[in-house]
Every structure is written in structure tokens, then in C-alpha cells.
Write a protein that binds this DNA or RNA. Structure first.
Lengths: 346, 346
DNA sequence: ATGAAAGCGCTAACAC
DNA sequence: GTGTTAGCGCTTTCAT
């Protein structure tokens, strides 16, 4: 680990002051053609890399955006992150990524860590912010952080915290899915996956019920089965559903992972999807169009969500007061996992 | 954005010197019970967060590990990252994540960025390090970086750069897959996906050919179809394969994404996998056991790869000379996408 | 156009 | 056990 060269070394060798070196480094003030050339040559010769830590200390900005999300292993999040990175790179930002794995303790820990590290802004998704009834203490903590660091919430909400948010309209997305099923002729529809205490699930379930009722259809509690967001959870939920004596002809799933698990189990039990059971997912993960059958789903436009969030965060970091809520419209993507009940028509 | 409080503020209010404050902050020297208590109370009262940037500047360490990978959107990488984070968190490290999207220019850019940011170490995967014939200039650049910052390469190699590596034995993994197919009775086997100029593909193809020859089987060039690593690539490759008049009864795919795409196309063309065509993947991504049919594949133990890499990097950062190559043994995971040719047996 | 010097917030000798 | 002080490497007035 050889010693790094500093502005002083450059200054000395070029016989100028560090201020001048700093000036050519930042173009912050005019420097004569000749000295500039000399300094640049020396920098290049030593492969000089200015120390960003020192720079951050004086400028009071790090160029780092902290990203907190539940689980990068769930395909939806990498797509969001990808959008974030794409947009953030354009403004020279860099990313500090943390997975909370749904652990609230970790959320607090990372939030503090980010303050210590003096990130310029925070993008926060999942976990606590998705609690339907958010512990006031936690809400306060988040609001507190937001007061000292620009923070935007992605797809979540915290009552009364007054946070800036960017969110897909999950209710309207769910409505899209349910109407599609109803349009196909289904009248017996269930809802799989999620966790009742998370607002994201609550929003979807509520929209599901409302849409069913508007169409004059009955909502059966036994067909609304929570239990998580993973593919394994989807398998188990479908298993429970299939153990009932009376079955729906279609199900909405809380996300694509769950839908894929549900389809898997349905197939194992001898059902044909979509002929015997239509399944619709949510998210439109990359693999959704490659599974068999291809998944009908609601696109959250994950990449766009990430890009938009960065744009909003940038306004905040710039000192502007961004709109409190920037909504994103989801889109229904019809593929092969849904069809008319009983396999009639297509 | 209210003003952050500093050690000076704390010191003043507690009527002690900053050194003492620093001492209780780090436990770096004894402090009397009473003053410690007083200081701690004041810190707590102001919710004091020491400025990590300032600390990094003096200590000459940031606690940040830079992670450079091709594409977080490819499910293999989130799993590796997950392992990295899990292991790194234990030692208080934090992560700076960059996606290169296979762009060599970006690789260089990020490498420089990480030096500027003074990360404590770098974990590097993909892209340039997977060039079969690596441009000497690029290799030199990497070696150069490795000289000033601890760096470990994950699943790749750069000729003569003398880099520290942690890598799955992709050759032995491929051999496992091919032998499995041969054991099932296949004699006509193809290889799908990858890019000829990447060492990871070259290693797999070479192992594929060797294993076939050892078993006395012919390798047909027309059945070795490169073209990328995505699911779409897999679809296209299978399409090309199926356009041939003479077909293999099984294919090895460069990764699970490709395998899933290949299966998809095979199914669309009316083939039954595995009855008409066996398909084996590589990586064992999370979804591999949830697709239909469940994917037979070679597990790279992505999480373990990440964890191991961090352990090795930690040795390097600690000044120790780590083993040049830490190999990881892949495992064959037999599921449903492979069977005896012609659907006989199972 | 260029230099001198004062910080940024913290740690670590070194003294007492 | 505690205080003084000199950095860490850079940016930024303020002079010149």
C-alpha cells in the first residue's frame, strides 16, 4: 500500500501553492494556461487522485445517496436499484446500499449509520414504512432523520410523518388486475400472499374487496390468504387454498414471486393454469415473461420508480420543496396465466 | 437541515476537552466514571452523531468496501451481494455498490471513483476480468489498483496480474453437469449461451468438451451456441438450435437465466422438457426450484462465494498475504429438467 | 493570476 | 485521568 500523493506534493513539484492546485482540480477560478498545463502534467504523471474524504469534509457533502431496502434478493428491488443508479450516476452520485431483511432494528441502525457517514440523501423502502399501524416512536424517528437529511420514501407511507414519497398506486394496480379477471368472466376470485400488518398488503386487499363489491361479487374470507411475499409462501398459500372444498377460479397474488409459487403448487396438484385456475401477479419482474405459463401481472415500472425517486430526492437535496407525493401509474400486462374460467375462450 | 453538533460542542457543554470526548467515543483510554457519565448524557441529549467523514480522514480508513459487479438485475449477483453484506456487516463494514453493465469504461471509472473515495477494499466481479484474452493495459490497470487497495476478484481471472481470487471451480461444475447427463444415457449433448471472449464461458466450454471426449462422445460445433447470458438470449439460442435438422437430446446452459429461456422456447415449439430435451442450468438462483419444470442446475453457492470473498478481503486489509486462490466447490442439484433421453426412465 | 492561512470534525501523541 | 496541539487532505476567503 504505497503512500498516496496529495495536493501538497503536486504543489511542491509544480512550485505553486496548494490553492492553485485546487483551482485546476475544480476549475473554481482562472489559472494561467501555462501553470495549469504544468500542474496537469504532474498530476497525470503521479496518477493523482484527490482524496474524496478530505473534500467531503470541507464541502460538507459526500455525493453519496444511501439506499435502504428490504431484500435485494427479491427481484423487484434490483430493478428499482438499477433505475436509481442509472439516474444518480448522471449527477455524479454514488450509492451506499443496505438490506434490512425486514428487521426494524436494522432499519434504525442503518439510518443512524447513514447520518454518521453524512450521506447527502436517503432513499427508503419497505419494512417499517409499510406497517399499517406504524409505531409512533418509529414514525418519529424517521421524521427526525428526514429533518436533517433529505429523505424520500418509495412505495410506503408513515402516518403523519409528513414525508416526501414516490409510490406506485397499488390500489389502482390491484383494481386493474381484478377487473381483468372479472372481464374474463370470473366471479369467484381469491387473494394470495402478503402480510396483514403491512400497509402495502392492506392497500391491495382493500382495493381487491372494493372492486369485487363494485362488480356485485362476493368476497370470501377463506379465499384471502396472507402468509408472506416469497415463492415458498406462494406455494403454501395455494396449498391451503386447494385444501378447501370450494375453490375460486382465479387468484390475485401480492407479487410475482408469490404468483410463481402458487402456479407451481397448482400445477403439482394437477390443475392447469390458466384453464382451471387463473393467476395474476404484481411487479412484472424480469422473469415474469419467461416462466411457463407467462405471467399476467401488474407492472410497477420498477426502474422508473427508482429513477423518479432520485429526481425527487435531488430536488430535496437542492433545497427545493418537492411535491409530497409523486404517484406512478401501474400497468396491466396480460400474458398467459389468466383466461376465462373453465378454460372456455381465451 | 439543522446544524450538526460536534465534539467541540459536547466538550464545551461538559466542560472538558475534545480529547476526553473522543476518548469516551472510542473507549481508547480510561475516563473517570463521572465525567464519562456526564459526557454520555450530553451526547445523548443532543443525539450526537460523530462525523464519520472526519474520522475517516484522520484514521485513514473508511470502513467501506467497494463492490463492482456486472448487473444486479441478474439474480445470481444479488445472492452474492447478500452474502457479502452479511459477512461484512459483522466487521462493521459498509458497501458501495456499482453495476458495470459489462461496460469496460465504467469499470475503470468505478475503480478510480473507489480510490478517490478511499474505500478500504474492493470486491470485483465480471466484465474485464472475464475477458479470455485480457487487454494487457487493462490488466495492468487492475494490478495497479490492487497495489494500493486490497482487492479480490470473484469468479474471474486476469492473466499475470497476480491478483487474489475467490472462485467457484466452474470447470468441475460443468463436468458435474455433463456427467449427470451422460449418466442418464444422453450421448448427443449441446452447450448454450455465454460469450466466447469471456473466460468464464471459455472455461465451461472447455470442460464440456473434455468431459464429452473422456466419455468417448462427439462434440458438435453446431450444438455449441453462444450469444449472451440473459433469458432472451437463451430463447434465441434454443431457437437456433431447433432450426437444425439434427438435434441433441440435452443441453448444458451457461447459467439459469439462459436455461429458463431455453426451456421456454423448447416448450413453445412443442417439445417436452425433459422428455424430449433435457436442460441443465448453472448458478441455482432462488427461482430455479420454483419454475416449471424445476431446474436441474449446478449450485455456485452464491452466498458462500460472497462471504468467503469478504473473509479473504479482510485478511488482505489486515495486511496479511492471503492465499492466491480460494476455490469453491460447486454442487450438482438434480431436479426435474433432466431425464433419460426419449423420456425413458427418470 | 496566485499565495497565505484558516477551517472542516475528528484522533493521537505528548505533556502534566 | 485530562488538556494541548498538531495533523489528516482538501477548499475557500482574503490579500496581493
Amino acid at each position: 500500500m504505497k503512500q498516496q500523493v496529495t495536493v501538497y506534493d503536486i504543489a511542491e513539484e509544480a512550485q505553486v501553492s496548494v490553492a492553485t492546485v485546487s483551482r485546476v482540480l475544480n476549475g473554481s477560478a482562472p489559472v494561467s494556461r501555462t501553470t495549469r498545463a504544468k500542474i496537469e502534467a504532474i498530476m497525470h504523471k503521479h496518477q493523482f487522485q484527490p482524496n474524496a474524504v478530505a473534500r467531503s469534509l470541507t464541502k460538507k457533502e459526500t455525493g453519496i445517496i444511501g439506499v435502504i431496502l428490504p431484500d435485494i434478493t427479491n427481484p423487484f428491488f434490483p430493478e428499482v436499484f438499477s433505475g436509481i443508479e442509472q439516474e444518480g450516476l448522471a449527477s455524479g452520485h454514488t450509492f451506499f446500499l443496505c438490506n434490512t431483511l425486514g428487521d426494524y432494528g436494522k432499519e434504525s441502525h442503518f439510518l443512524n449509520l447513514m447520518r454518521e457517514k453524512r450521506v447527502d440523501g436517503i432513499l427508503f423502502m419497505g419494512g417499517r414504512v409499510n406497517l399499517r399501524v406504524c409505531d409512533p416512536a418509529l414514525a418519529r424517528e424517521l421524521a427526525e432523520h428526514a429533518r436533517s437529511i433529505p429523505l424520500v420514501l418509495l412505495n410506503g407511507d408513515v402516518k403523519d410523518a409528513g414525508l416526501t414519497r414516490v409510490a406506485t398506486d397499488e390500489a389502482s394496480g390491484t383494481t386493474l388486475a381484478v377487473r381483468h379477471l372479472i372481464g374474463l368472466g370470473h366471479t369467484r376470485i381469491g387473494f394470495l400472499g402478503g402480510a396483514r400488518h403491512m400497509s402495502t398488503t392492506a392497500v391491495k386487499v382493500r382495493a381487491f374487496r372494493r372492486t369485487m363489491k363494485e362488480a356485485g361479487l362476493a368476497v370470501r374470507d377463506a379465499w384471502t390468504i396472507p402468509g408472506g411475499f416469497s415463492a415458498d409462501a406462494g406455494r403454501e398459500q395455494m396449498n391451503r387454498l386447494l385444501s378447501l372444498r370450494d375453490l375460486p377460479t382465479a387468484v390475485c397474488c401480492v407479487n410475482d414471486f408469490t404468483a410463481i409459487g402458487a402456479i407451481k403448487t397448482a400445477a403439482e396438484q394437477g390443475l392447469n393454469v390458466p384453464a382451471d385456475m387463473s393467476v395474476v401477479g404484481f411487479d412484472d419482474i424480469l422473469l415474469a415473461r419467461h416462466v411457463i405459463p407467462e405471467l399476467t401481472t401488474v407492472s410497477q415500472q420498477a426502474g422508473e420508480l427508482g429513477r423518479t425517486a432520485v429526481r425527487v430526492l435531488r430536488e430535496l437535496m437542492g433545497g427545493a420543496a418537492a411535491r409530497k407525493l409523486t404517484p406512478l401509474e401501474p400497468r396491466l400486462i396480460v400474458r398467459q396465466s389468466t383466461a376465462a374460467p373453465g378454460g372456455q375462450g381465451d
